[in-house]
Structure formats: C-alpha cells, structure tokens
Amino acid sequence: MKLLFVTDPLSAFKIYKDTTFSMMREAARRGHTLMVCEPKHLMWCHGSRELPGAGRVTASVRDIELTGDPDVWYRAAQASGLGRPQVLSEVDAVLMRKDPPFDSEYFYATHLLEQAERDGARVFNSPRALRDHPEKLAILEFPDFIGPTLVTRDAADIRAFHAEHRDIILKPLDGMGGMGIFRVREDGLNLGSISETLNKFGAQTVMVQRFLPEIVQGDKRILVIGGKPVPYCLARIPQGTEVRGNLAAGGKGVAQKLSARDQEIAEALGPVLAARGLLFAGLDVIGDSLTEINVTSPTGFAEIAQQAGFDAAAVFVDAVEAALARS
C-alpha cells in the first residue's frame, strides 16, 4: 500500500513515544510505502496549465524510508520544502495525524481532504467526522457516561455551577495537553478572574466540570480502533501538586488493563464512532466518567507497547488494511 501521513513536521517527532511514528514503523515492516506532508502542503487548483492536479486535491509530499537509527530516523528522497506533487486519490490511504489545535487552518485542511474523498481518496479519520466531533464537546452526546458538565459563555452560569458542585474544573474548548485548565475549590478563590480569562468577558465558550477526585489514579486514555477497544489504557497520573494528568503537563503514563466501566464505555461508543468514519479514537476517562473524545491524533501506542507488550500499532494497520479491503 501507498500511505500518505498528513502530520506535523518530522523534525518535531519524539520517536520514542510518538504514535504516528509507531504507525509508520509497523506499516514499513509490512512493506508499505510511506509518504509525508503537512496540512500546509495540501492544494486544489482548477483551470491552470502550470499547477498540478487538474482539479484534484494534490499535496507536496516527501517519500521517506525509516532507517532504524534513533538519531537519524528517516531518509527522505526529497529535501524539506522541496516535495513532489502527489494526487491524494492516487494513494491507497491518507492518514490525517496533525496534532491540535483545531484552528481555522485545520478546519480548511479537513475541507480539502473531504474534496480528496470526492476524488476517490480514502482518508482516516474521516474529515467530516473530525469536524463533527470537537474533542471536548463530543461527550455531550453521551450523557449516561459523563459527570456534571456545563458548557457556557456566561459567568453567572459558571458561578451557579460552582455553588452547586463546590469543586470544579474549567477549561477552554480549544486547548490541548492540559493547556488552560483551572481548578476552583470550595472557597471559590479567583473564580471571577479565571472565568474572565477563559470566557473573554463572555466572548468565548468554556467547559466546566465537577472535579473528579479519582484523577489521583489517573486520567485514562482508552484507545478504540475500528470500533473496538484496545485491552490496555494509558493512565496519565498527575505528579506533585499538579491537578492535570496530561503527559505534556508532566503526568506519568502508566499502562493498565481496562476496568469493567472502561470496557462498558468503549464498547458503547466504539461502534458509533467507527460507523461515522472514526477509525481511531481516544476516550479520556477519569474514574467512571467520560471527559473527552480525542479524534485528531490520539496517542499512547508506544507507552502501551513498552509497558504492557501490546502492539496497538499492529492493530491499527490491520484496521486500515481491512477498511481498504472492504472498499
């Protein structure tokens, strides 16, 4: 198969823990061909003799091979910034693995990828599904699995929610890696200032959730591939005085088997998400409560493989191959 990864710059990869690298390594092990580009390299043009594509979505790609050397981990046929044109519908699969934030440029990239689908490209995850499942708001569809949650711009709503639940978490809808998350305890200290910071004096919507003390056991990332849960999750455990378990915020990742509740949540959501074109999703669970649904570039393959010996990358490539075989 010819696989095109739409991702962040290769220079930013930390291959000892990067899930996209794990996917690439497994695909290469099976003899598949690897290409890479960034969202900024996507292009569509109609009515030009000078530009490639002839009305089909094209990318400036680099053909890469993995070297097995952790210091110089790939070899590219093209220098950075000097890719070759590749029509997306002429590769076997396009794997959208760009990290958040889900900003305007990400949004535009999903529209270009959806046009590529109209040309005949197979894109995972589905561009439309990426747009339809904002990672924090996607949980609202599944109220049976979430804790007390508020989505609002209104500072009075936030104060009322705090008055009822006494210990709350506030976070921006477009954050990642634990960025912009605040805890306000029973004393309400700085609630007004935090609300103003996050909601921009009513101009921006925020999410507020009751604080879940089970966070001390970890913010669990449950991986769902092809609608089925991976049997191990990655619990991101806060360290020291930190309330956030995110690895980017210093949390410690511990692989562990799914609990009965984890399994229940994953088995309920997995088929629904897969039917919408989300081949790979990451469910965030604290205690017994679903807190987020990650669809842009879920991670955890490397840590689960290293600690539990379970090869989620192989399961993922199996799922891609099976999806292509059905088409």
Rank of each mutant, 00 (worst) to 15 (best):
K171P: 06
A248S: 13
L34G: 03
Q306N: 12
A281N: 09
V91G: 07
I215R: 07
L42R: 01
R326D: 09
V254S: 01
D69I: 11
R75A: 15
L189N: 13
L42I: 03
G300C: 09
R49L: 14
T67R: 09
L198P: 09
L273E: 04
A12D: 14
V224E: 04
V91W: 05
D69C: 11
G178W: 05
Q263D: 14
P298W: 00
M176G: 08
Y16I: 13
G226A: 07
K200A: 15
G218R: 14
R210L: 07
G287F: 03
V57I: 03
V216A: 13
R261P: 07
L269M: 04
H32V: 11
I225C: 03
L269N: 06
G240W: 04
D18R: 03
E65L: 12
P143K: 02
R30V: 10
D132N: 14
L212G: 02
A109M: 03
I293M: 01
E242I: 01
V320T: 05
K220A: 09
A163K: 03
K98I: 06
Q239I: 11
L82K: 15
V61L: 06
I286T: 07
A314T: 08
S297V: 06
V61S: 08
A305D: 09
D99T: 01
R326F: 03
A77R: 13
V272Y: 13
I169D: 02
R62Q: 10
T299F: 10
D219Y: 08
